[in-house]
Design a protein around this nucleic acid. Structure first.
Length: 449
RNA sequence: GUGGGCGUAGCUCAAUUGGUUAGAGUCCUAGGUUGUGGUCCUAGUUGUUGGGGGUUCGAGUCCCCUCGCUCACCCCA
């Protein structure tokens, strides 16, 4: 039955070389909601960003790591926090065939913290500095700058409590955007304290809200009970008024957190980085302590939307069962950064721009052209081709579209005589050269153009 | 999860407001005498009008459901 089908399909293919999609044969052509193809045109941007980010990360001492996309669900619920939106409603969780409770990673830090413990990185020279690039998954409603599969570039500095590293992490984050060419960015920063001082502050906050619960939104009433820090994040008119009068975490830090934060700001001043103190920045991941920060455009369609964010998580590795390992990290959204580049009209070069195009006519010429193409490529000459085409006309058309400087023409006659025609695409001048001299000749000409 | 806008060819859009066989530009492919690109000319391919149901003699057009896209909220990168 199946075989018959295959033969039938094959027959169809030979009858009709044109590619058409029969909707009744090929089932789903749509991507899953919130997922999308990243096409070559966009990859120009991705490559541009990746290349620069990677170089900078390496220059700042970070080494690349890739952790699994799938982890045990409990890793995320324990580290990101049971009561966070991410864990509560945004994870792609399911049971495997052997009844393991697994989740697609909604963020990268938890996996890296796990990797730190699993691979005994505590025995490496400290701090351990790692960077990554990969897809994250969150089951959210897609909108501008937000997809269910989204890519992040990020880095983590594990096991160092010094404030100078907080500043360096921010410095690098800003530097990456700068190197990509983005302008008008600002850093929002806050400190949300540590287990020493935060409970006290939370108590103050709750005391402040206690007689106001009837004046806040439904969401906030929930937050009041479950996650009081997030009260500060609300954007509802009536809640904002209350937030403005609320006690602020930076006024109630313990002396250690206070000094830590003060030092960071001094470093940032020294670096002349544009930051704004935002006492209402709390971020939705429970593992953060002390420093939290975000980087956003000041103007344009993404004004106020974080292109990247991070902070310190001194307790995380302890929560996962390790020793006290004060750490911090940052991650940036690739899609958002690409979009912001477009918003700011930053153009990027095409990934591949051949300088030379090899055309061939006739069977024996075509046979030789594969080898010639290989020789050209090995000599680092960027070469285009369209071997599937027969006529010289259509091949030169392609050459023209690619914008090459020179076209090489190898016909039957040339193949026999062991020569090739070099055509200057601008002037139309042609010259016949010996095949064994062609590489030198091309190099010479490309230099002169 | 809640609310708004939108789904017609790969892309950008038409279709006299319910009336024959759904068109145009662009893109792509091939040709314009047998071996030479850009401009120009000619020809060709492409659609279950997102899907399903209903009203009607008749639906791309009206109604219902559904899916998707998109924007905002929530939250985050």
């Amino acid at each position: 039955m199946l075989r018959k089908k295959i033969i039938k399909n094959r027959k169809k293919l030979t009858d009709k070389p044109k590619i058409t999609i029969k909707k009744d044969i090929v089932a789903p052509l749509q991507t899953v909601k919130g997922m999308r193809d990243i096409l070559p045109e966009d990859w120009r941007y991705w490559d541009f960003i990746l290349e620069r980010a990677k170089k900078l990360c390496q220059a700042y001492g970070y080494r690349q790591i890739e952790t699994p996309i799938l982890e045990e669900t409990s890793l995320f619920s324990r580290s990101v926090g049971e009561a966070t939106d991410i864990v509560e409603k945004e994870m792609y969780s399911f049971y495997s065939k052997s009844r393991e409770n697994l989740s697609l990673r909604p963020e990268a830090t938890a996996g890296i913290a796990r990797a730190y413990l699993k691979n005994g990185m505590a025995n490496w020279p400290q701090p351990v500095k790692l960077f990554y690039f990969g897809a994250m998954f969150r089951y959210e409603k897609p909108q501008a700058g937000r997809h269910r599969e989204f890519w992040q570039i990020g880095y983590e500095t594990l096991n160092d409590p010094s404030s100078v590293l907080d500043a360096q992490v921010i410095q690098l984050a800003f530097k990456i955007f700068e190197k990509i060419g983005l302008k008008n960015l600002t850093i929002q920063i806050n400190s949300i304290g540590c287990p020493e001082c935060r409970p006290e502050y939370q108590k103050l906050l709750k005391d402040y809200y206690r007689n106001k619960t009837n004046r806040i939104c439904l969401n906030c009433r929930n937050r009041f009970a479950k996650n009081p820090l997030r009260l500060l994040d609300c954007k509802e008119e009536k809640c904002i008024q209350i937030i403005n009068g609320a006690p602020q975490s930076i006024d109630h830090l313990c002396s250690e957190c206070h000094n830590h934060f003060k030092e960071i700001l001094e470093y940032l001043d020294e670096l002349e980085l544009p930051y704004t103190l935002n006492p209402f920045l709390v971020r939705g991941l429970d593992y953060y302590t002390k420093t939290v920060f975000e980087i956003c455009p000041e103007t344009g369609p993404f004004a106020g939307l974080a292109l990247g964010g991070g902070g310190r998580y001194d307790e995380l590795i302890k929560i996962l069962g390790g020793e006290e390992t004060p750490s911090l990290g940052y991650s940036m959204g690739v899609e958002r950064t690409v979009q912001e580049m477009k918003n700011q009209n930053i153009s990027v070069p095409p990934l591949f721009t051949p300088k030379v195009f090899l055309t061939q006519l006739g069977e024996s010429a075509r046979k030789k052209s594969l080898k010639i193409f290989q020789d050209l490529t090995e000599a680092n000459i960027k070469t285009g081709e369209s071997f599937g085409r027969g006529s010289i006309k259509s091949q030169l058309k392609v050459a023209d579209k690619l914008g090459v400087k020179l076209a090489l023409i190898l016909g039957q006659k040339e193949a026999i005589d062991k020569v090739i025609i070099i055509r200057d695409m601008k002037t139309g001048m042609q010259e016949i050269v010996r095949l064994d001299k062609v590489i030198d000749e091309i190099k010479k000409r490309l230099k002169n153009i």
